[in-house]
Nucleic acid binder design. Structure first.
Lengths: 137, 137, 137, 137
DNA sequence: GTGGTCTAGACCACA
DNA sequence: GTGGTCTAGACCACT
């Protein structure tokens, strides 16, 4: 309930990386706020049928990054002093993915209009997939 | 000269994959046409300070895929009977990159409009970077 | 009031260990003398926002070690027959910390003189921080 | 020959941490210079009879810290642009260990002179342990 | 050859 | 209950 991760074991990007990336973005967006508790290593591992060490590795990375805070014997929490970032900062985090897509579109000889239209469809689908979209009432 | 690759050794996607993907997309778009010659393994390796075996692996993959043709003593060429693909086919190749970006945008709490706007800027920049844009004069 | 602990929850050394070590050293130096009362578990826990069980664990260790004495309903006291130790014994307790620092200094390529000078500054600062220095008026 | 680590499996500080700390200090001192290759994960693991994953964990931390650079398929190297640090910077790295020792000395009721003398003996011993001291001819 | 990832499971330490 | 550390060993990917 507090947070559900999308883990795709078959994805080429490693599982621990999927966790790291999702936490990063959710903290940036404020959907994970300072002080929030994360699911325990064991709970997350069991929920997705992955190894606890894989989860632990992700959490450790996020801790050494200053995004999470370990409270001994109690669990992992979103670090204090981690306010949600501004729209500009969040757009900067999105930039690399957009640039990669733009380069591919160019190499594929697609027009900007064609690429934008396809992206819009993807965005609609992504919003629909979410349990409840943050966009509309 | 005929073709310049964007190789980023520090990118998480392996170098040989970067080469393979770029060739695939350029053949799909027709910017590499049947019969065109590719840079020699040595030339490409030297130009980007990468291992010749890495280039060779990429070319071999593309050859076994039927996209390239090795002419002994002469080099690698785009195989005949490799017409550019339709727009729909090329959009399908672009899809994965767009979906990844869309998911990230959602996790970052960005609206579809904000994401689209940012993507448009990336497309403009990508077009500007190209020696000559395939879209308009 | 009688004794103030330096507790750093983020320190890699566990909290209960920080308490145990500080009590041990203060008893060795005589700054905690036989019969002195220690702060109650609750008081110490509240003062440093730590778990009472953590304090309790530290006190229990010190009790089983013979350093402290639990007087029912009254609190914890420094055990009788616990004379301050000799300078040589106290230096032996300091040794591990000095050896660790010496090894680090060597790995950092610092000369003995540079390390000693820096240590002297630390000692001065530590003396200054103390309410009243045990060395001179 | 290139680099030998001091690994003490019985030390309370975890093995991977011992490796991380030693690399950090050696890079700071210049005894490991930019571009130097580190022992391979497997070699280091075998030499000290520890698990390759333990070494790998240490190297990964150092990489994410920017101190080491992974060259795919070739090994780990000290990152470029990692000049040895100034004496002041190296003293700053030594500071925490010195402060801990100073606080302990104070709690033990030892005079600054007594602590300094003991530290000097430790430094002499540390220098003697080193194969060849960097201090004298 | 190199490092990366993941698993399964043990054991420890902390609260 | 929590996370941390380590092992043993498999499999993958890159050069």
């Amino acid at each position: 309930m507090s947070i559900d991760f999308d883990i795709l074991p078959s994805d080429p990007v490693p599982i621990y990386r999927q966790i790291v990336d999702q936490v990063r973005r959710r903290v940036a967006s404020g959907s994970l706020a300072a002080g929030d508790e994360l699911p325990s290593v064991r709970a997350l591992a069991q929920a997705h049928a992955i190894n606890p060490m894989t989860v632990s590795k992700a959490y450790s990375l996020l801790e050494s990054e200053g995004l999470l805070e370990r409270r001994r014997g109690m669990g992992m929490f979103v670090a204090a002093l981690r306010p949600a970032r501004s729209v500009a900062q969040r757009l900067a985090l999105l930039e690399p993915a957009l640039q990669a897509a733009a380069q591919q579109a160019r190499e594929l000889g697609l027009s900007a209009g064609q690429a934008l239209e396809a992206f819009e469809r993807c965005l609609d689908r992504a919003a629909g997939d979410a349990a409840r979209s943050p966009e509309e009432p």
